[in-house]
Design a protein around this nucleic acid. Structure first.
Lengths: 258, 258
DNA sequence: AGTCTATGCTGGTATATACAATCAATGCAA
DNA sequence: TTGCATTGATTGTATATACCAGCATAGACT
């Protein structure tokens, strides 16, 4: 038999609901955040208030709120209160902003110049990059991207026609090749390589930098299944550009740095 | 005046140590794991046993152990016990090979030279990078990585001690800082920045390249929840090194090209 | 007006307790 | 031997309480 003595006046909860009270409190707060009722920086009710509202003990509220804090949704300051955290990661697992986005987010205007857009047989090197037969007809594209009129990126792209037959018909001054592909072609795998190179004569001229200035070169290949869709080299003036990727594992994240 | 009635027999802890008991319990368990006393799958003492060992209440132990469970270090089964969680080496979503891996895969031998390894108060700049208070004690590390004896990477790393208390005690000539963190610290979010810079005097000397040679700089910050674990700058001789990331999105792929 | 102090919020941590839920092992019965 | 119920260990959740520490403000003092 269990010893059943309720020492002071301890409320024995009837436990109507199956889901834990602390869980309900967490959900309540999360819903406030995602519905927009609570914006980042807003203060949420104090533990005491929440406890009253839910007829819960302060400890239970504390647990719920503490967990949300660990999870990064809230931010607490002793003596002051609890606030909705600025940060709301979620959604994209790995995001690389397109050049246009990046530029626009900095409050500048993006424009581009089409240097080359053709359909030609692949050279041996190009065929190797796309893993197709030499001589296969492929799309070749060269675009210079500008930020407020200043050269910021050279995009050299190869595309296998069968995955984006209408590719060359786009107006690449209004939509970047990346944005077009992103919106119109499914992919299953991406590989990046990043290295730093000297600009060299031709690129230096296009980017309006010294010919031995450091450049950041990002090479990306994109697959659907085991076939390559597109190969692209993005070359930036090194010190002027920054490539940023952000990776969020909502939970059960297993691995790390390098 | 405060009402000071200790209703039943409630122990008023003398609070010898400044650091919270629950924190001490967490550290105790974490140390057991990283020291190898506890291997994945092993059962750790029950809440009751730990409570007795630490002269703590079961609730305090429960809190410590629950937090470690949320953080993915432990796994609990009601009615059975608490176990050290399996540590799966790599998340398939986004992989960044460590420098040692990369070198070994090229059939070369990796070695490293420890340039600096200290625990010091954070400067203002360092504090900003880790988002901690200026003057907080942090681990600072500088390692030069070599491939077949040739300099290939400079690693400048800052680590918040509480996430990897034993970090500085590692032998970084046999395990890279990255590999150590990868195996011993969970994270929830990663941010990368890549840019190209000129080597400059000091770095040029270490990497044995011209002082205006292009270098690839990768800056990475790693979070658990909303706290930064580590900040690292990896600087490579541009043309000699390549940073490769591979991303596979079987579904839920939100963003990409660029 | 300016400065200090007391007070009352707020969260941070810890304790003691209670009971529910789950699981493995045990033991009894068919 | 098989099947089922009991039991004990263990975690899951919740309550009530206590005291500490940080912050802001009102009011007292200079």
């Amino acid at each position: 038999m269990h010893k059943t003595e309720a020492t002071p006046e301890m409320k024995t909860p009837t436990r109507i609901s199956q889901i834990p009270l602390s869980r309900q409190i967490k959900d309540f707060i999360l819903e406030g955040i995602s519905s927009g009722d609570l914006s980042p920086g807003d203060r949420i009710p104090s533990e005491a208030e929440l406890a009253k509202h839910f007829s819960a003990s302060r400890m239970t509220v504390n647990r719920a709120v503490s967990e949300l804090t660990v999870e990064g949704r809230l931010s607490r300051v002793q003596g002051l209160g609890t606030f909705v955290a600025e940060f709301k990661p979620l959604a994209p697992l790995f995001e690389v902003r397109s050049i246009a986005q990046e530029v626009v987010e900095q409050g500048k205007t993006h424009s581009s110049v089409l240097l080359e857009a053709e359909c030609e047989p692949a050279t041996k090197q190009e065929a190797g990059r796309l893993e197709v037969e030499t001589g296969t007809e492929i799309f070749k594209l060269q675009v210079l991207h500008l930020s407020d009129g200043r050269p910021i990126q050279i995009e050299v792209r190869l595309v296998v026609p069968k995955f984006a037959p209408l590719f060359l018909e786009q107006d690449f001054t209004t939509i970047t090749p990346s944005d077009y592909l992103q919106k119109n072609v499914l992919f299953s795998e991406v590989e990046h390589k990043v290295d730093a190179v000297s600009a060299g004569e031709e690129i230096g001229q296009l980017l309006e930098i010294e010919k031995n200035a450091p450049c950041l070169r990002l090479v990306r290949r994109t697959w659907i299944g085991n076939e390559i869709i597109t190969y692209v080299q993005l070359i930036h003036p090194g010190e002027a550009f920054r490539f940023t990727g952000r990776f969020t594992g909502p939970q059960n994240v297993k691995a790390m740095p390098c």
